[in-house]
Structure formats: structure tokens, C-alpha cells
Amino acid sequence: MASKLVYVLNGPNLNRLGKREPGIYGSQTLEDIAGLLVGRGQTLGCEIEMRQSNHEGLLVDWLHEAEDKGAHAVLLNAGAYTHSSVALLDAIRAIAVPVIEVHLSNPHAREPFRHKSWVGQAAKGTIAGFGAQSYLLALEAAAAL
């Protein structure tokens, strides 16, 4: 059986995980989370393509690429772009690949400006508030699609 390609796209400041506000985002680095995803992906028959950028346009390009490369799903932690990027909303709507929105923290339990998600308006679903486990839960959901 061929493995399912799952893109895991991470937005601004997620390269600072482990150092950035560990009380909110935890102490695991993005590399730690990538290792967890690759391991779990192997048991689920998923190949993980993990990327991070602080640049909105690159995230848009990668969403398009996910479709062009035949990805099964995209896990997207858009970081702050979640709450501001109509470009990401449009990019998600422009592709047929299901996108699962992922957050380490629970945006609804935080500042009011974080309560609105442009990404969530086009995502298949959202998993938030479980720290690094949010990514693993999203991968389980993606594999089941």
C-alpha cells in the first residue's frame, strides 16, 4: 500500500517553539514535534512533509504544492496568520486537498483577537489546545480521511 503524503505547514514564530512562551506553547521544539509525527505517521501509513516559514506567501505556495504533489491532507498551524490572512483562506479554498487547522494552545481561551480564524473558515476541521498532541490528533484525523 502506498503511503499517504501529509504536508505539515507551520507559520510565523513556530521556529521558536521550546523558547517562545513555554507556558503557552510548551517546551517541545518544532523538531521534536516533527519526530513525533514521523513516528506516528509510519504506523498510520503516512509520509510527513514538515515545513515552517515566517512568510505568508511561502505558506500559500506550499498549499498549492500540496495539491500538485497529490497530498492526502495538510495540517496547518498558521500561527498569527490564522487571525489575519485572507490569502491563506483563499489558498485553502483554491485546493481540493483537505486542510486541518492545528493549534498548540486554545485560541478561544486567549485574547479576543485570536477568537476569529480565517483559516478555520475553509478548513475541514480544527484541533487546538492540546500542545504537541494537537498535531498527533490532527494526523490521526488526516489518516482517517
Rank of each mutant, 00 (worst) to 15 (best):
3 S>H: 08
5 L>P: 06
6 V>G: 03
7 Y>N: 02
9 L>D: 05
12 P>K: 13
12 P>T: 11
13 N>T: 03
14 L>T: 10
19 K>W: 00
25 Y>H: 00
30 L>I: 10
32 D>S: 03
32 D>A: 01
35 G>V: 06
37 L>E: 02
37 L>G: 05
39 G>P: 05
39 G>D: 13
41 G>M: 10
41 G>E: 12
41 G>Q: 08
41 G>P: 11
47 E>A: 14
47 E>W: 15
49 E>R: 10
49 E>N: 11
50 M>K: 12
55 H>M: 09
56 E>V: 02
57 G>H: 11
59 L>S: 00
59 L>F: 03
60 V>N: 04
63 L>W: 03
67 E>H: 10
68 D>R: 09
69 K>Y: 14
72 H>Q: 06
73 A>L: 09
74 V>R: 03
78 A>P: 06
80 A>G: 14
80 A>N: 07
84 S>E: 13
85 S>W: 10
88 L>Q: 01
91 A>E: 07
91 A>D: 10
91 A>K: 05
93 R>Q: 14
96 A>Q: 15
96 A>F: 15
99 V>N: 08
99 V>A: 08
110 R>C: 00
111 E>A: 14
115 H>G: 09
119 V>G: 01
121 Q>T: 14
124 K>L: 14
124 K>T: 12
130 F>A: 07
131 G>N: 08
131 G>R: 07
134 S>F: 06
135 Y>Q: 07
138 A>N: 12
139 L>N: 07
141 A>G: 13
141 A>P: 14
